[in-house]
Simulated assay, not measured.
Amino acid sequence: MKIAFVGKGGSGKTTLAALFARHLAADGAPLLAVDADINQHLAAALGATEDEAVLLPALGDHLSEIKEYLRGDNPRIGSAAAMVKTTPPGRGSRLVGVTTPNPLYDRLVRTVGGVRLAVTGPFATSDLGVACYHSKVGAVELLLNHLVDGPGEYVVVDMTAGADSFASGLFTRFDATFLVCEPTRRSVGVYRQYVGYARDHGVAVHVVGNKVENSADEAFLREHVGADLLTCLGRSGWVRAGERSGAQPLGALEPANRAALEVLRGAADAAVKDWRRYLDQAAEFHRRNAAAWASAKAGEDLTRQIDPEFTLTGR
């Protein structure tokens, strides 16, 4: 299952993404975590030091290499330069699995805190005025378009905060979307904005209450998000200790919060995998990008990259 963590900045989105990834990894689940947030903090949340996090290879710095590998010998794609973030796979494209060895993983995936991690890379000073962060996140979208996950396998992606996720079709690349929501008006406002977009595309959103201290907090969330509220995590001394002195042993996490992680896993496992819809949505956003800017930039009709006879059947 491909799983996204979204929500307002400061809601605890990255912390919960890291916590959930560690929870899965501790159980031996095949897993790939991806940091697609403009603020690259997932590695630190998994236990990396600042120096270790800086040294992680960045997907955004290897976009041409990623394109060249994924296009394979797809005859609809003349060159890596003709690929854009929404380019879907077709016959001849190279697909990747969650744990299957391949040159991209060898170069760009590292294990942090027991979790296999790929990072988009930070928005650097050199990017100011000449680059868009969404061009870097395009590496993640391309990877997910070509990633075939099987039963019991997980891809956990820490997304950029708020509605920025809708700047591309990336928000449709997931089987389960967990929106982390504090019991505050601002956080609920982000929820309303997010689901307003997501439901237009059939994206199911599960709300995960965070920093919930009492029944009044939970009642506030339930009043504003209704049946979308999946579970709640309370304020955590375990999390606070980790923020001060590094990642803590997972076994010391509060039992109620550990139980909430199992609820998240159950929701992810219950999601229905629909490969046809997955491809159709990829094609939809590729057409949009082609019409808006990509075909003009490439000097060719990029909608021809869509292979109507190609199927993703899982493994």
Rank of each mutant, 00 (worst) to 15 (best):
A26H: 04
D27P: 01
D27F: 02
G28T: 07
G28P: 15
G28Q: 15
A29R: 11
P30V: 03
P30T: 08
P30A: 14
L31Q: 08
L31C: 07
L32Q: 02
L32W: 02
L32T: 00
V34H: 00
D35V: 07
D35P: 08
D35C: 06
D35N: 11
A36G: 04
A36S: 08
A36V: 00
A36M: 03
D37W: 00
D37A: 01
D37L: 00
D37H: 01
I38K: 14
N39W: 09
Q40I: 10
Q40D: 06
Q40T: 13
L42E: 05
L42W: 01
A43L: 07
A43C: 12
A44L: 04
A44R: 15
A44I: 12
A45I: 09
G47L: 12
T49N: 05
E50V: 13
E50P: 08
E50S: 05
E50H: 12
D51C: 14
D51Y: 07
E52G: 05
E52D: 08
V54I: 14
L55M: 15
L55R: 15
L56R: 00
L56Y: 00
L56M: 03
L56V: 03
P57F: 09
L59S: 01
L59M: 04
G60K: 09
G60I: 12
H62K: 11
H62N: 14
L63C: 12
S64M: 10
E65Q: 13
I66T: 15
I66K: 08
I66S: 09
I66A: 03
K67I: 03
L70E: 00
L70Y: 01
L70R: 09
L70M: 07
R71G: 08
G72V: 05
P75F: 00
R76P: 11
R76V: 13
R76W: 05
I77G: 04
G78M: 05
S79Y: 04
A81D: 14
A82P: 03
A82L: 09
A82N: 11
A82G: 06
M83R: 00
V84L: 12
V84P: 15
K85F: 14
K85S: 06
K85R: 14
K85D: 11
T86H: 13
P88V: 10
P89T: 01
P89W: 08
R91C: 09
R91V: 13
R91T: 11
R91Q: 10
G92T: 03
S93Y: 06
R94L: 14
R94W: 12
L95K: 05
L95H: 02
L95Q: 03
V96R: 14
G97I: 10
V98Q: 15
T99A: 15
T100K: 13
T100H: 09
T100V: 05
P103Y: 04
P103M: 06
P103E: 15
L104Q: 02
Y105R: 09
D106G: 02
D106Y: 01
D106P: 08
V109K: 03
R110K: 15
R110S: 10
T111S: 11
V112H: 08
V112I: 13
G113L: 12
G113D: 05
G113A: 07
G114S: 06
V115A: 09
V115N: 06
R116S: 09
R116N: 15
R116E: 08
R116H: 12
L117S: 05
A118T: 11
